[in-house]
Structures are given as C-alpha cells and as structure tokens.
Nucleic acid binder design. Structure first.
Lengths: 337, 337
DNA sequence: CGGGGCTGTCGAAGCGCTTCGACATTTCCC
DNA sequence: GGGAAATGTCGAAGCGCTTCGACAGCCCCG
C-alpha cells in the first residue's frame, strides 16, 4: 500500500505539503503541486480512509437508513437509495447502507463510532423511534418523510397533503362525486407512516370543500387483495366513479378488475394514482398520476446534508410540490343515473 | 466523544486491557472484564471506527456495488442489497453502497483507500470491466452472477442454465411443442449479462433434447412493449402454446393481453415465469414459476466474503438449484388442431 | 535599503486504537 | 517446595493522516 510519506519522498517534499496539495487548505506553488500530483499518479496513491478519518474526524461517509420492510414502495426506496449514493459521490461522500433490522440503536452506534459524518433516514414514521436518539446525538441528519414533530429536523418529502388534495380536485373537476381511495397495506397505517396519513388528510379536507364523498380502504398489493377490496367498495358505495390509488402494486390489478367487471376506464370509472412515473406509464391503461419524485428526494436530501456538513444553514422542511399528469385513465364522470 | 482511554481510567485498568476485553484476543479475568464492561455501558462508549481501522487495518466494511441501471430486476436488486446489509451486520460488518456511476475505477478507489475490507459485485456481466481491476487488487471479493471466465473468483448465482432447462422440461412434459421465451430488454442481452444468456443456453439445449421449438424475443417491461412483442410472436409462430417469461415487469401484461385476446390460461396457453415469488403469487393468475432467490443470494455472498476474511477457504462458484413451483398458469397443451 | 507582510514549505504533535513484548502473579507438577 | 508453564495486565510503539505554529525567502513601499 502506498502511503503519503512515500509520495512525499518521491516528490521530494514533506508529508504535510502533500497533504495540503490534496486538501487545498493552504496555498502551494504550481510547480510543487504538479510535482506532487505526478508522484501521486505514478505511484497510484490513494489516501487511507481510516487514517484520514482519524486525523480529521471526518469519514466522508453518509449513513442511509432504509426500512427493512418490503410491504411498501420498494422500487421507490431503491430509486431514492441509488439517487442518494450517486449524488453523495459527486460531493465526495460514500454511502453506508443500514437496514432497519438493527433498530433505533443503529443511530447511536453510527453517531458514537463516528463511522459516518451524517445520516439520512428514510421511511420516517410520525412518531419514529429513531428521532429521540437523533436529537441527542450531534450527528447532522436529514429525514426523508415528515414526522409528527419535525421541529429541529431537516426534512424532505413530497407534499402528500397537497397530493391528496390534487387528486380529489382533479376528479371533482371532472364531475365525480363519490370517490374511493385505495391505500397502502393496513400495516402502513397502523405504524403511522406520515405520508399515508397526510395524503388522507389532504384528500378529506379538499373533499369536504368540494362536496365529494370519500371512502378510504387500505389494501395489500396484488390481484387477490385488490379483488376483495374492490368488491367491498362497490358493495358499500355502488355509486363510486372515481378512484385514487396510493399503492403501486394495486394499480394494475385495479385496472384489470374493472375491465373484467365490464366497467370502462375512463368512461365509467376514473382512476388517479400516486406512484412512480414508470408504473403509471407501463400499466395497461396509461394512468393519470401524481409522480413520486424519488430521485429528486434522494438528491435533495444529500444536498441538504452536505450543506449542513459545510456549515451552511438549511431550511427545516422542504415539501416538493406534487404534479398531476393527466393520462388516459381519467375523464368526465358518467351522467348520473 | 468517549474514548477508550476514558473507559480505561474509569475502570481502573490500562487502555490495552480495555482493548483486549473488546476484542477477546487475550484472556482477561472475569472480574476485570466485568468491570470494564460496566464502564463501557455507563459511559456509553463506542469505539472510533477510523482509529480502529487505522490501527488494525480492518474497516469492518463490505462494499456492495449495485448496478446503476434500472432497466432490470430492480426489486430483486433491492432484496439482495437488503439481505446483504442485514447478513453483514450479523457478522459485525457494515455495508457501503456503491453505484455503477463511478465506473470500474470504484474498485481501485475502494481497494486503494482500504475503505472496505472486501467487495461484493452485483450484476456481473460476462466480460465485466471491473474484473481485471479486481484481479490485480488484493481485496477479497464475491460476485453475484457468473462472468465468462470465473477462474479465481468466488461466485454466487442461481443456476440459470438449469432454470431455463427446467422451464422447458415442465412445458414439454405437459405436451407443449412450441415455446416462446419472453426475455429481458434487448439492452440486457447486448451488454452480455450472464444470467440472461445462460438461461437461453439452458432453454435451447433442453429444447433440442426434447424436440421442442423455441422462439426467443427480448422485451422491455410494460404493457405496450409486451403487446408488440406478443403480436410478433403469434405472427411468426401461431402454434405457440407455451411461454417462458424472464422479465418480471412483463408477467402481468402478458397474462392480461392473453386474456384480452380470448386465449385462456392455462387451457389454451401455459405460462412459466422466472421471477420473485411475490410477483408470481400476486399476478392476476397465480403463475407457475422458478423463484429468484434474492435473499439467499445476498446471504450466501456475505457468508462467503466473511469466510474469506476469516481466512477460511471458499469454493469458487456456488450455483443455487432452481425450483419450479407449479401454480395455476400452466397445464396440458391443448389437443392439436 | 530596511522593515513589514505575504507565500510556500516544513517539522512535530497527536487523532484513538491495536498489538507486541515484558513483567508480575498464580498454578501446576514432580 | 521449587522451577516451569500458564495466566492476566501493562506500557509503548506505531498505524497514516491532518493541522498548527514556525520560518525562510520574497516583494513592496516609504
């Protein structure tokens, strides 16, 4: 393994000079810099990460805690994770992947061991167990998701309340008066996942304002679960003409079932989904949807965390504005009767 | 930040004693050990990762290189990544997430900086660019996937050749004589991804043995792409009664389209998929499938890498045996005519 | 032309840990 | 009961880097 000392000897300078060339924290003459850089290249030198972390108390690592659960939004999570890793690299950071497995203790372990300079938490619950630990640690952090009490935390998320409202508005504008919301799996609500609840708040509030009736049903993904849920919905509210789907693995089953039941989309039934673009576009009917900007969320989270590490100040919460794209699955409500 | 020295002082022993309590590399009397452990607990001590890495030249980090591409198997990748992270923790390792973004250079960077003790590469191509770099570095590595020349590398993968053969056998056994294989996106074949090609080898070889005709068509995911592909298949081979699908985002569209065309599954057409269990079970018809054991692959990869780091010897390649689960999408071929 | 301020470089200290050899002490066995 | 072999603990060196203060040489200006 090549060390800084060897580079220094090879270039005929002192170790500290090499270090300053690398970090740029002091001015170095062009001639010296070039000589050192050449030596670095020739010897194939890479700074030892451990030594660097020890000396500078900076590991250049950002920890990313992903949820262990797979009952939800897996592709979205993956997309965020990839965006985080990629963006982090452009700022000179690597990403440590932590799963929920370890529990909230992971926060303490990472902060205590100085393994990472900062953390990004995904899938933040409204009353997330990790947050108290995060509060007492000094490690900078950014949450993807919005907890019940975001005070003092920096958060990035899609504005799900606005998203819910937007979906209702769209359907109401088309004349729909009875709307069903097909939500995430029941477990997601039970553990008070912020985005699911906030979406419903947005839906309900706007529905009241617009005089629309709303029925909300959680739904596991998949065809069978969707079939059962759908039957119950039409049983309870036969006049339902609009659907909002917030569960990407329910989108295609829903379209499929409606077709099988002889209900035409969008002539008889309109469907709006909250899901990644890809899902909306690849479905059997191109679905009107509010996109989940996974990449954007990952990118913004990293940028905020890097800003904090650079000592720049950072706004507390950033809620990305939802955008609804009209496609082929929504249209005017059928004439009553 | 609590240091080892403070723990030592608190417990009334020397620093080295605390270190030995932590590592267990020398015998420590029960009394002393308890005293030290108590101090550790009381002070909330966590060893500094950088210092430890520097002194021991072990970072206790495993680097995981995931593909950047999203044209393929994303949920499978996620599942593997999570399994890797979770399994790694049980062995005392953390996982560093690297994306393909950085290119093969990442291998050199990680090896050179001693950031990680070992690497796991996912999505290995037949002639993967990273492999030459890996060969010349001393960093232990495990590949998930099988390159063209696996000599000297430790690999874990599903036995895709056997998988292809198994699918053909199943269909042939049911009397199907004309089979179409719906593959991954064309780009996947163009870059010579091992698993895709090996599946086709297995399919073709067994098909010859069993006197079955095979037509292979790559297919992007999604409904529209599948519709086009399907039309071309029936155009070219109207007698096709069996389908093998190796693209999880084509499974549901295929079932859907067949239904729309009035072809009953499994009465007229049998479908066998190579996909995660969840996809097979959640589809509109429960699909006969060979599962992709993502978790198992991630777990085995970590176990191999840890074995190497422990100096234990490790077999070069482990190919997991495919298992075909019969569900509702495959049945006897319709009588000829 | 001499003092003050830059610039560019160096040496040394130290980050927190592991690990090696040394040294007491205890235990064992003949 | 005495020497050899364990057993348990300590001190010190050093891992490879960053960073601080020092300092030599330079230029500039009065």
């Amino acid at each position: 393994m090549v060390t800084l000392a060897e580079v220094a000897r090879h270039a005929g300078v002192s170790a500290s000079t090499v270090s300053y060339v690398l970090s740029g924290k002091r001015t170095i003459s062009a001639a010296t810099r070039e000589r050192v850089e050449l030596s670095i290249k020739e010897l194939g030198y890479h700074p030892n990460a451990g030594a660097r972390a020890l000396a500078s108390s900076r590991s250049n690592i950002i920890a990313l805690m992903v949820p262990l659960r797979t009952d939800m939004y897996v592709p979205v999570m993956m997309e965020i994770a990839i965006a985080v890793a990629t963006t982090a690299r452009t700022h000179g950071y690597d990403v440590l992947l932590l799963t929920g497995e370890e529990g909230p203790e992971a926060v303490r372990r990472i902060a205590g061991s100085a393994l990472a300079d900062a953390m990004i938490l995904m899938d933040v619950q409204l009353d997330d167990e990790r947050l108290p630990l995060l509060r007492e640690s000094e490690t900078p952090a950014v949450l993807i998701g919005l907890p019940a009490d975001p005070d003092g935390f920096t958060c990035v998320d899609l504005d799900f309340a606005a998203t819910g409202a937007l979906c209702v508005e769209h359907l109401a504008g088309l004349g729909h008066r009875e709307i069903a919301v097909i939500g995430e799996a029941a477990a997601v609500y039970e553990r008070h996942t912020g985005f699911a609840e906030r979406t419903m708040h947005g839906v309900r509030k706007r529905a009241v304002g617009l005089g629309v009736r709303v029925l909300h049903r959680p739904c596991e993904g998949g065809f069978a679960a969707m079939a059962a849920t759908l039957a119950r919905i039409f049983d309870e509210r036969p006049g339902t003409t609009g659907f909002v789907v917030q569960n990407e693995s329910a989108v295609e089953p829903l379209l499929n079932l409606l077709r099988q039941q002889g209900r035409a989309v969008p002539e008889d039934i309109s469907v709006v989904a909250v899901c990644p673009e890809q899902v909306a576009v690849q479905a059997s009917v191109r679905v009107t949807s509010v996109a989940i900007p996974a990449q954007e969320m990952g990118r913004r989270a990293v940028e905020k965390v890097v800003a904090k590490l650079d000592g720049r100040s950072v706004e507390e919460a950033e809620l990305l504005k939802p955008e609804l794209t009209v496609r082929a699955s929504s249209g005017p409500a059928p004439a009553a009767g």
